[in-house]
């Protein structure tokens, strides 16, 4: 059996396959389909300080090999999350990474971290500074579209917690490596990339966008080559571990990310189609390593051959 253990900051995972924020609910929705204990980690739906209703419907639309969404971070708020969701989540005995976001003021990240820092079941915190679907921020730049803002935010959070911090980046930038470097230098333990690509789809009969918020975030196999390229670019610039995501839907697509330099991968949209995707990938990676006589998943990380 090849070694699948990996670490991100202080966080140690038994395998490098997680489920991406917003695609796995709070895990209970998947408990009939898979043995949740097998997952490397569970990243929760993003939590905000206050409860959020989410955006108007329709919120999703299928696209060629992809899914466009504008859910708008619907969530019960941090208090209810801690009271109702976390007690259920911790029963699965899998590291829980809590995704958090601010609505208006970046200070909310600090407040949220402060609340979560005291809870031992929270294995790590993912800073979602890249959600394209918050109404309050429409038209404004995302934190992760600005290297200075990213640096400032990560630094402020880093100051108040020793928990592992993962910063989730948007692909909707000119140069993602600048943002990655800013997060690394501010003390982020790992980077999650990529969040969804901004997109739009129009109904030509109704002459209306197909989702209520007009534009949304594109995910699924359609964006995989963009995600793999970004992981590869960032891997060459930073030293902290990368969690690759964007169209991870089977073992082969997961392996592309490891070869591009990722330490771990997260399954997102594929959870909606085949709820067993994540555990199938864990088994598939094991088989691939065995077949190629590799003893450790980390051996893939720098094995990409470029130019011959």
């Amino acid at each position: 059996m090849a070694n699948l253990n990996i670490s991100i900051g202080k966080l140690k995972l038994k395998n490098p396959v997680m489920v991406a924020s917003g695609t796995f609910g709070y895990a209970e929705e998947f408990s009939d389909f898979i043995d949740l204990k097998k997952l490397g980690a569970i990243v929760t739906k993003t939590i905000t300080l206050r409860p959020r209703q989410g955006n108007a419907a329709p919120r999703t639309c299928e696209t060629p090999a992809g899914l466009l969404n504008s859910i708008g971070l619907e969530n019960p708020g941090v208090d209810k999350f801690i009271k109702d969701k976390l007690p259920v989540l911790k029963e699965y005995h899998v590291p829980i990474i809590v995704s958090i976001a601010s609505e208006r003021d970046p200070e909310e990240f600090v407040e949220l971290t402060h609340r979560l820092d005291r809870i031992k079941e929270v294995a790590a915190i993912e800073l979602n500074i890249s959600c394209p679907n918050i109404r309050e921020k429409k038209g404004k730049r995302l934190i992760s579209q600005d290297a200075l803002a990213t640096h400032g935010l990560v630094k402020a959070v880093r100051k108040i917690t020793n928990k592992t911090l993962i910063t989730k980046l948007t692909p909707n930038v000119t140069d993602i490596t600048e943002i990655a470097l800013a997060a690394e230098s501010a003390g982020s333990d790992g980077l999650a990339l990529i969040n969804t690509l901004a997109g739009m789809i129009i109904d030509i009969e109704k002459r209306r966008p197909k989702i209520a918020m007009a534009s949304g975030g594109l995910s699924g196999p359609a964006i995989r080559p963009v995600a793999v390229r970004m992981v590869w670019e960032v891997h060459q610039k930073v030293k902290i571990p990368l969690i690759g995501m964007g169209g991870v839907s089977d073992t082969r697509s997961a392996l592309e990310f490891f070869l591009a330099g990722a330490t771990a991968v997260a399954v997102g949209t594929a959870n909606f189609i085949n709820p067993k995707t994540s555990v199938e990938i864990i088994a598939g990676i094991g088989k691939y390593l065995c077949k190629t006589n590799l003893k450790d998943i980390k051996a893939l990380q720098n094995s990409l051959k470029i130019n011959g």
């Binding site: 929705e29 998947f30 108007a56 419907a57 999703t60 299928e62 619907e74």
Partner: peptide
């Protein structure tokens, strides 16, 4: 009837506005 992404209550895509706030058509 609604377009759905997951059908199992995870994606929160098939929202319908009710007197008790948004609910999931699928779940």
């Amino acid at each position: 009837e609604e377009h759905m992404a997951c059908g199992i209550g995870a994606c929160l895509g098939c929202a319908v506005n009710t007197r008790a706030g948004y609910k999931r058509v699928c779940k």
